[in-house]
Design a protein around this nucleic acid. Structure first.
Lengths: 345, 345
DNA sequence: TTGTACGCGTTATCAC
DNA sequence: GTGATAACGCGTACAA
């Protein structure tokens, strides 16, 4: 419709000519450096604004400045990605931090951790990003060696034990797990089961250990069943566990989706929640609040976590030494899905 | 731990030297252009691979190539963003398309449409993106004039009527609305209410009109109540509507979150779903499948929509003329929340 | 303050 | 047809 009126591209040279000065002065004026008279500075800023000029970021980057961009690669199937509320919350938090520094977030979704390492390598070589955020670390994750060899600023979101000395933002999953187990113990439950994430994630072992320790400390019978975090595997695990002879009366899930489907599974098996079985979810998304009965969950503020991680990454980019930072510990938000253990028959 | 062994940055000159040729030949060889003997080409590719070199994208961009990046600006509060499943699904789809072309997605979250237009202007001036995706259009959206004046490739995700001649990917919301109304009518409902999004979104009017036409055509009493799409406003609307004297027996919500909270509201009012009132949601996320009773919903494949929109944007970047493309129409997925209308007393 | 070399690929031009 | 030389794009930073 409106046939674009050929907006010619404005360069620093145009601004310099129009302001009757050199490109150097324009550059200095714009970046607020000394070496320009305030009269010239005024004139340059006025002209720049009038012409609507902003420096080509490619040129800045080439000249040695940063790319004003941080990168986040996610190794996920796009379909799964859209189911997990975690990532959008995390990204939203990252954006909240970046907005204040007018930096951008470059996002890429790849099939696996190997491709993730490649993407980071490419980004670094092509200087598209000033730093990267790493999530979902595996033990001996290939990304670690890529960023440390390349000297690319990075922040690991996860336990320091797998971060090989990089800056880390982590949550105390062990403490959170303990809270959940103690909550069940306090309600009189004697048999509890953890429905867990795959072993390949670094955090899994941490939660596993904490679960076993806490259960032993409280004198509870305990067990761990493995899933792939999907709805189906959650439902299957719940069904198996709840129909076994000495079924547990307390279940702790490693995410919220599985906990929600377990509500339905329990219902199908004729078990009442929390009358016959109590359920605790990990990650307190909208889901937990909206289902009936509401799910007791270990909630943490993922948006804040993303903002925190991004802030630390900016520090590292600015030259901060590696350090570890603990984010808020997930807290138990009690709702209707947990209650007193049923009386033994 | 591993004290970064100073990986020097590799440039095209390094590759040229190592391959005993000129930088020009390296460039030609890498980009598969003619003018290089296959022997030289082989050698260059081998060296490039060995040195792990990939061209600095800043330099390419400066030399006139594209930025290999598309932009997506969202005008949302980060907290809200993380609640709506739509965006993560959309982004996941976009990524699926971009992955095949090894392009990146630059994401920015800003408070309002004005800031959105600014961000797009900045991106364009600094040549950071080759094109942008526009979602949630307002009537007379400031972004439209920015992209058309700048001649920046863009694709509007929304109704062509507000896209001012830009390439558009849209879903037939009117037809979907009609389906939902006819479904309720077929079940014998005589009074239906639409719990709608704010007027400021362009799609709202389209759905409003379709709702009224379809209800009139089916001879139903009908009404529209306005919300801000939040949980709270959904609950309030449901409460008001359902406690009115001649309460409707069929409700059509403009998103899924409100429909889910309405289940709880109905329960609190002592109304059975679907015995006393039938509920239909718009956007069929996991939520609709996991609640009890399952929610009948107008579902569309948002991941596919994102992939489609990105594909069209790549076409526009490659020079395609503006055109409109209809994505799949949302279809009614019937679950337990809709049933025969209660018998009038 | 300003001229100018530099960063790094791309492409037009030229010599072989 | 092959391959090399050089100009270009655009800001930055140092020397003059």
């Amino acid at each position: 419709m409106t046939s674009a009126p050929q907006t010619r591209r404005v360069t620093i040279a145009d601004v310099a000519r129009e302001a009757r000065t050199s490109t150097a002065s324009v550059s200095y004026a714009l970046n607020g450096r000394s070496g320009v008279s305030s009269a010239t500075r005024e004139r340059v800023l006025e002209v720049a604004a009038r012409l609507g000029w902003s420096p080509a970021s490619a040129a800045r980057t080439l000249a040695g400045a940063g790319a004003d961009t941080i990168g986040l690669v996610l190794a996920k199937d796009p379909r799964d990605l859209s189911v997990e509320p975690f990532y959008m919350q995390f990204i939203a938090g990252v954006e909240a931090t970046l907005a204040s520094r007018s930096m951008g977030l470059l996002l890429e979704v790849v099939p696996d951790a190997g491709a993730e390492a490649d993407a980071i390598r490419r980004w670094h070589m092509s200087r598209r990003v000033d730093g990267v955020l790493l999530t979902d670390l595996l033990p001996d994750d290939p990304r670690i060696s890529v960023v440390s060899q390349a000297g690319l600023p990075a922040v690991v979101v996860g336990d320091p034990s797998v971060a090989a000395g990089l800056t880390t933002v982590w949550t105390n999953d062990a403490e959170a797990t303990r809270q959940a187990v103690e909550h069940l113990a306090a309600l009189g439950h004697r048999r509890v089961t953890r429905v867990a994430a795959p072993r390949r994630y670094a955090y899994t072992a941490i939660r596993d250990d904490a679960f076993e320790q806490a259960a032993r400390a409280a004198g509870l019978e305990h067990d761990i069943v493995r899933t792939d975090l999907s709805q189906d595997s959650g439902a299957a695990a719940a069904r198996t566990v709840l129909s076994s002879p000495r079924a547990p009366t307390g279940l702790l899930f490693d995410n919220d989706v599985m906990a929600v489907v377990a509500l339905t599974t329990a219902h199908e098996l004729g078990l009442a929640v929390p009358g016959d079985v109590s359920i605790i979810a990990w990650d307190d998304s909208l889901l937990c609040r909206l289902v009936t009965p509401g799910l007791t969950a270990l909630g943490h503020d993922v948006v804040a976590l993303g903002a925190h991680a991004a802030r630390r990454l900016l520090d590292v980019i600015d030259g901060a030494a590696p350090s570890t930072h603990q984010d808020a510990t997930p807290t138990l938000r009690c709702r209707a899905s947990t209650g007193r253990a049923p009386v033994e028959v």
